[in-house]
């Protein structure tokens, strides 16, 4: 449990306009919401809660958390909308996939802590499993110095990374989403699939292991995906003294710290685990703070 609940800058939007909601890969949709103020505030690694329910209805009841994918701006550079990319898993995401442009949905955010500033010169490696690639487009653009997010100016002293690469693992080629977006943003993409239908056959963690084996020492590794993958990445990074952050996807009901659904054991300064709310203290944590011996959902 936590003492850290700084006043949130999140906004409640009972009826944000769906500008776009189209399938970009198998069961994977890109949703664009026309809310300039959330778009102006949100940072890479932060998330929003979106309700899939049609306006004025209550099914499904709760919102679902989705990471910021990208922010759109008008000619003068003002943010006008933002995107999330989501995989249809259950009732919440299935309902969301039925929303059409012009529909209105409830959304609240930005929520969570985000990734923080660039680690400085050197390379950044992003490791994504499944739909875990979504937070890395905005992060890559931010750390490469190609875009800036949020309504507070970037410190002059922040040095961009020299390169950013996404190591992207999915079950099968049909699930690959947004590879062109990453390439267009100047982020290298290397793919692994469980069935060998694209890129390397095998787990994405093998791509990371091979790079480290070959002597690569990124300034930072950041991972998002299923817990076993995160644990494997954390182990690799720790064994080679590479700074590593992970973005957790714990099950959430509110997204803003009120329900205590999303707790996970986080190691404190004295080395003891304490349950912390992923939605307010995370979703991004230094990998060495996560108690990998006790997985949470």
């Amino acid at each position: 449990m936590s003492d850290a609940s700084c006043p949130s800058r999140a906004l409640m939007r009972p009826a944000a306009t769906v500008l776009e909601n189209r399938e970009v890969a198998r069961d994977t949709f890109r949703l664009r919401l026309g809310d300039p103020e959330i778009a102006r505030r949100i940072l890479p690694g932060q998330f929003v809660m979106v309700r899939g329910a049609a306006e004025g209805t209550d099914d499904p009841l709760l919102g679902r958390p989705f990471a910021l994918y990208e922010v759109q701006r008008d000619e003068s550079g003002e943010p006008v909308s933002f995107d999330v990319v989501y995989l249809v898993i259950g009732r919440g995401t299935a309902a969301l996939s039925r929303r059409k442009p012009g529909d209105r949905v409830a959304v609240w955010g930005p929520l969570g802590n985000g990734f923080g500033p660039s680690p400085g010169s050197g390379s950044a490696l992003f490791i994504a499993g499944g739909i875990g690639q979504t937070p890395f487009l905005a992060l890559g653009r931010d750390w490469l110095g190609r875009a800036s997010y949020g309504d507070r100016p970037k410190p002059e002293s922040e040095t961009p990374v020299d390169s950013a690469t996404l190591l992207y693992g999915v079950r099968s080629a049909g699930l690959l989403a947004g590879v062109e977006d990453f390439e267009r943003a100047g982020i290298g993409v290397e793919i692994a699939t469980d069935d060998g239908s694209a890129g390397r056959l095998g787990f994405v963690t093998q791509l990371l292991a091979d790079r480290i084996q070959a002597g690569e020492r990124p300034a930072k590794v950041v991972a998002c995906g299923p817990p076993p993958m995160l644990a494997a990445v954390a182990r690799l990074a720790q064994a080679h003294d590479i700074p590593c952050d992970v973005s957790l996807e714990n099950h959430m009901a509110c997204g803003f710290g009120a329900c205590f659904s999303c707790v996970t054991p986080i190691l404190q300064d004295d080395g003891r685990p304490d349950l912390r709310r992923v939605c307010v203290e995370g979703p991004v944590f230094p990998a060495h703070r996560v108690d990998w011996s006790r997985p949470s959902h």
Partner: peptide
């Protein structure tokens, strides 16, 4: 519970 899906 309503506060969870409409914090206002």
């Amino acid at each position: 519970t309503a506060s969870f899906y409409n914090p206002a």
